[in-house]
Nucleic acid binder design. Sequence first.
DNA 1: TGTACATCAGTGAACGCGCGTTCACTGATGTAC
DNA 2: TGTACATCAGTGAACGCGCGTTCACTGATGTAC
Lengths: 249, 249
Amino acid sequence: MTTSTTGVPGIRERNRAAIEAEILTVGRRHLAEVGAAALSLRAVARDLGMVPSALYRYVAGRDDLLTLLIVAAYDDLADAVDAALARQQTEQPASGPRAAFTAIATATRRWALTHPHEHALIFGSPVPGYTAPAERTTGPGTRVDAHLIALFSGLDAPPLPGVDPATQELGAASLADTLQDPMFLGANLSPTELLRGVTAWTLVLGAVSSELFEHHGPDLATDRDAHFAAVVDLAAALAFPPDSPDSQS
Amino acid sequence: MTTSTTGVPGIRERNRAAIEAEILTVGRRHLAEVGAAALSLRAVARDLGMVPSALYRYVAGRDDLLTLLIVAAYDDLADAVDAALARQQTEQPASGPRAAFTAIATATRRWALTHPHEHALIFGSPVPGYTAPAERTTGPGTRVDAHLIALFSGLDAPPLPGVDPATQELGAASLADTLQDPMFLGANLSPTELLRGVTAWTLVLGAVSSELFEHHGPDLATDRDAHFAAVVDLAAALAFPPDSPDSQS
DNA sequence: TGTACATCAGTGAACGCGCGTTCACTGATGTAC
DNA sequence: TGTACATCAGTGAACGCGCGTTCACTGATGTAC
């Protein structure tokens, strides 16, 4: 369309890309400052030195901007997790899935602490009057999950002591349908592994949100890092077999 | 002041109490319908058949109304938990702390599912531009916690298999200061018990929020009750010794 | 290389909306003597 | 029991604010011939 016949993008196209990037940057800054509920198209436009209506050349409306920010947040988090995994892979090439789980959990918490509003946007209470379009958010929203699924596969952990086998069985069975999702293709995950993995991850996210939103006040732990490490250790004990190596730094 | 010399409240005083109650009722209904972020003084006044400014006779402003609603939500949840515990006490008088933990978790989830916005108000992301006055919310906010503390005391559970003792020790130590809080007076709780108890409860709240906010989409489990029961079973395994009885209904 | 036309970016004004909060006021309810 | 005064509940109008979205428009950038 606007592409010239040589395939080289013209100025218009380059400008458009530049401004789209700028909108995203400013949008993220506003999100970080005021939160999703108070995010305003007019304020973003103001900050871009534009008149509000001009934004509609680039964004269909406020909801569309929110969707862009959600996608960006998921991607940013996933990038941070990818980086943490890669770092670990080079520093401790022999480490197993449990250490990878710990690395993912730690990176997720770090990211949340540095991006509280973006964490709230994707893991907190829903933004009033907005529902995310699944076809745009599920892709980036499952990048971290894909890592976890790989880690939880083929563990064959023995039942935890003090756990009721019948209750576990029923809970696992209720997840069987989910395993049909294409996401799990080739993962070779058992319902029980999924149950225990999802539970471990729920605990991690719960701990992060609990720390961030201060459910137990600001002073629960004197050493928050140590507290979180212990929680992650417990979470890992839910999903991984007892002899699984976990190298804490 | 307005009390007559006989000690019997006059009409004014009774009217005032009645209207205060009505404000709370309408406020809660609005909260349930639109959520905390969209809660508006004007709308509440409208619904009461009053002019907006009249509300200021009863409430200092929007923030004050929010505080009232937070207190009411905590109390309502705690009432539901109390009722569930009492019911269990009569139906299964011989059941132990682990069964009580399960009852509390189940009641908390039930309450959250029937009061999603109130759950979000106290356990979700913070309301933008509002910070709760601790001196008014901590009282009702810790009623459920008090039950849990009692349950977690004196358990002396053995270390979970697959858990790193050093990591647990550090995590527990970071909670030692918290144990000085008057709330723990006479509870005889060890740092390790607190760590494992808080973690178990974090998992429960995380699971409730995850289900409510649909972090894994609407269709993670075909039988959500069974899924939740299995998660609570795993949570209990974190805090209670393996031989602790847990009677699932 | 030059001209006629189509596309696009951004402007500026306006729409209608709802919000929290203030203020001077009326009329009813209570209190003191 | 009656009267003068103080307290309180609720009214109505107004303040200034920011919001999302629409619309007709100007001027610049690109395209076709």
